[in-house]
Design a binder for these strands. Structure first.
Lengths: 220, 220
DNA sequence: ACATGTGAAAAAATTCACAGCA
DNA sequence: TGCTGTGAATTTTTTCACATGT
C-alpha cells in the first residue's frame, strides 16, 4: 500500500466541548429510551438540551453516520453507539481515595454504576475509618494505594481528600499506572500529560451562578 | 449628559469559559496568598493552571486593569477584585433540597462557606429525615420550600434530589423567586431563561475522562 | 415532506506580537 | 529588563443552507 490510508474514521482532534455534549445526548437518550421512545430528530434532541439541530448533527458527524434522513436517530441504536464512542460500553474499575463527607457520598452515588463505572476500592488515611465498611465497600489503608490499583487493574482514580493531600495522592496514582484522574479537591494538581485529568470544584459551580446572577445578560 | 456613556467598564458579553477560568485564577491566588506570596505574573499564573500568559491577561482585561507592568499582579489586590467581579464579596444565602447521600455531603462541604456561600436551609420529602439535624442544620419539610426561600431571602438553590423529582423542585424554586439554580440531579431541567442554571453531573465527568483515555490524543 | 450530513460562511475565542510603562 | 494591555492575525467553533436520501 502507498499514499494515505483511505479509511481512518476520525482524523481531526475532537473538541472537549463536543465530548461533553455527547454525554448530555447520551443521558437524554437514555431517558427517552426508558419512555420507549423509538426515534428522535436532531432538532428535538437539541432543543431539549438548549442546542441547535445543526450542532447535534455536527457533533455526531465527528464519529460517523448514525441518523436516517426523514426519520432522525433511533434511540436504541444511538445509545450504544455513543457509549462505544465514550468508551463506556465496558465496565471501568475505579478507585476512590478520601472517604470524608464527599468521598462517602460519591461511594453511594448510583449514577456512576449506571454509566459503567464500578468503584472497586475505597481508601483513607484515617485509622478510625480503615477497616470499616462504607456503602458496601471496605475502606483500605491509603498506604496500600499502589498495590491495590495494580492488583485490581484500576484504570481511573477519584480524589476526594483535603486539598493539601491531593497532589501526593495523584502522584501515587500515577506511579501505580492509572490512566485518568478525577480530582474533587479544590486545588490544581499536576500530572504527566499523557494521563487524563479533570477537576471538579463544587464551589466553582456556585461562583459561575453567582456571576451570572450579578451580571444578568452579560455572559453566555 | 448626551451621547454614549463614556465609562461603561464592560460592554461586550463575557464568555462562560472566561468566568470559569476566573474562578480558577481566584482559587490559585487564594492559595498563593496563604503562602504570603506578594505578586505573580500572568505567565506563572497561567502555567500553573495550564493556560498561556496572554489568556490570563485577556481574561482579566474584560473587567479592567489590574496589573503592574514590570511587576505582575498583586495577589492581595487581585483576590478581592475577582471576588467582586464574581459577586462573592458578600455572603449568598443558599438552600439545599434533597438530603440523601449527595445532599448530605454537600451540606458538610466546607468549600462553599469559604467562597461566600452559606447554606441557610436544608429540605427533604422523607418524614424520617424531616426534623433531624444534619451538619448543624435542621432538615425542613420540602412542602415549606417556597415560604422558606422567601422568608430567608434565599437567592440560590441547589438540587440534589432523585432525577424524577428535580423538575418539580426547580419549578418551586422559580416560583419562590430564586435567582439561580445548581442542579446535581442527572437530568435536564428547564426554567425561565432569566434565571441562571448550571448542571453538575458527576458521572459525566467520569465519561469525559473515559473518552480521553480511550482516544489518547484525539481530544483537547 | 422530512430530516440527515456536510461544505461554506460567519462568529467567537485564542494566540501573537509589540508599544508603553515601571 | 520584565511584564502588562491590547489591536491584529490566526485558529477554532458554531451556524447556515442545501444537496441527498427515505
Amino acid at each position: 500500500m502507498s499514499e494515505a490510508n483511505p479509511k481512518q474514521p476520525e482524523q481531526q482532534p475532537v473538541p472537549k466541548a463536543v465530548v461533553n455534549r455527547l454525554s448530555l445526548y447520551l443521558r437524554e437518550l437514555q431517558h427517552l429510551l426508558a419512555e420507549r421512545r423509538e426515534t428522535i430528530s436532531s432538532g428535538e434532541l437539541g432543543s431539549r438540551l438548549g442546542f441547535t439541530d445543526a450542532q447535534v448533527r455536527k457533533d455526531l458527524a465527528y464519529f460517523g453516520q448514525f441518523g436516517y434522513p426523514g426519520i432522525g436517530y433511533r434511540c436504541g441504536e444511538l445509545v450504544p453507539a455513543i457509549r462505544k464512542i465514550l468508551g463506556t460500553q465496558f465496565e471501568w474499575p475505579v478507585v476512590m481515595v478520601g472517604i470524608g463527607n464527599l468521598g462517602h457520598a460519591l461511594l453511594g452515588y448510583k449514577g456512576f454504576a449506571r454509566q459503567g463505572f464500578h468503584i472497586v476500592a475505597a481508601l483513607d488515611s484515617d485509622p478510625a475509618k480503615i477497616g470499616t465498611t462504607v456503602e458496601g465497600i471496605e475502606v483500605a489503608d491509603i498506604s496500600d494505594l499502589v498495590p491495590i490499583i495494580k492488583q485490581k487493574k484500576v484504570r481511573l482514580g477519584m480524589i476526594a481528600v483535603p486539598a493539601p493531600a491531593a497532589q501526593q495522592v495523584a502522584d501515587q496514582m500515577v506511579e501505580a499506572g492509572v490512566d485518568g484522574i478525577v480530582n474533587f479537591a479544590p486545588v490544581t494538581i499536576s500530572i504527566p500529560e499523557h494521563i487524563s485529568l479533570v477537576g471538579v470544584d463544587l464551589a466553582i459551580e456556585l461562583e459561575q451562578i453567582a456571576f451570572a446572577v450579578v451580571n444578568r445578560g452579560d455572559s453566555r
